[in-house]
Amino acid sequence: MSRKRVLIIDDDARNIFALKATLKARSFDCLSCGSAPEALDLLKTGEPVDAILIDMMMPEMDGYEAIPLIRQIESRKETPIISVTAQAMVGDREKCLRAGANDYISKPVDVDRLLRLLSQL
């Protein structure tokens, strides 16, 4: 069985480091991008990615804007996207799902929940 490959999109290097360390320790391969435009460029190349974790609050282009653009890439229409955000207000999950995310997880990330979400891929 091949290892699942996760793309982490976050403007905070500390978040990328923590997520990568957590996922790599559980046999995931990880890629990362520090901005949504960088991630869009990577995703357009056809780079193999089994799931995307995207921070919803980033400068330049946030996750709400980026997710629909990711979905416009033919090879990414069905790629699972999990929004990761510090926002945990009523209605935030629904807003993420309306943007095109498959699911939502708030920061600080509950590792067990994240692993459950990724195991459903």
Rank of each mutant, 00 (worst) to 15 (best):
M1L: 14
M1W: 11
M1Q: 13
S2P: 15
R3G: 08
K4V: 07
R5F: 02
R5I: 10
V6H: 03
L7K: 00
I8M: 08
I8E: 05
I8W: 03
I9M: 06
D10T: 01
D11E: 10
D11H: 09
D11N: 13
D12C: 10
A13G: 11
R14H: 08
R14T: 02
R14W: 02
N15P: 06
N15G: 08
I16N: 01
F17Q: 11
F17P: 00
A18W: 01
A21T: 12
T22F: 09
T22A: 15
L23Y: 01
K24W: 03
K24T: 11
A25P: 04
A25S: 14
A25M: 13
R26Y: 07
R26T: 00
F28C: 09
F28L: 09
D29R: 11
C30G: 01
L31N: 08
C33E: 05
C33H: 00
C33Q: 12
C33N: 04
C33I: 08
G34I: 00
E38K: 12
E38T: 10
A39Y: 04
A39W: 00
A39S: 02
A39V: 06
A39P: 03
L40T: 01
D41A: 15
D41K: 13
L43C: 10
K44N: 15
K44D: 13
T45G: 10
G46V: 08
V49W: 05
D50E: 02
A51K: 00
A51Q: 05
A51W: 05
I52F: 04
L53E: 05
L53K: 03
D55N: 00
D55K: 00
M56H: 06
M56N: 07
M57Y: 05
P59C: 08
P59I: 08
E60P: 05
E60N: 12
D62T: 09
D62C: 04
A66M: 09
I67F: 07
I67N: 03
I67D: 07
L69T: 01
R71L: 06
R71G: 04
Q72R: 13
Q72Y: 07
Q72N: 14
I73Y: 06
R76T: 11
R76L: 15
K77L: 13
K77A: 15
T79E: 09
T79P: 09
P80S: 11
P80T: 11
I81N: 06
I82K: 02
I82W: 00
S83L: 10
S83C: 15
T85W: 02
T85G: 05
T85S: 09
A86D: 10
A86T: 11
Q87I: 14
M89V: 11
V90A: 15
V90S: 14
G91Y: 05
D92A: 15
D92T: 13
R93N: 06
R93T: 10
R93W: 06
E94S: 11
K95W: 07
L97Y: 04
A99T: 05
G100S: 00
G100A: 02
Y104M: 05
S106W: 04
V109Q: 11
D110K: 13
V111F: 01
D112S: 14
D112Q: 14
L114N: 01
L115A: 09
R116W: 12
R116L: 15
R116C: 12
R116G: 12
R116Y: 12
R116T: 14
L118P: 01
L118Q: 08
L118I: 08
S119I: 03
Q120P: 00
L121E: 14
L121Q: 13
L121W: 06
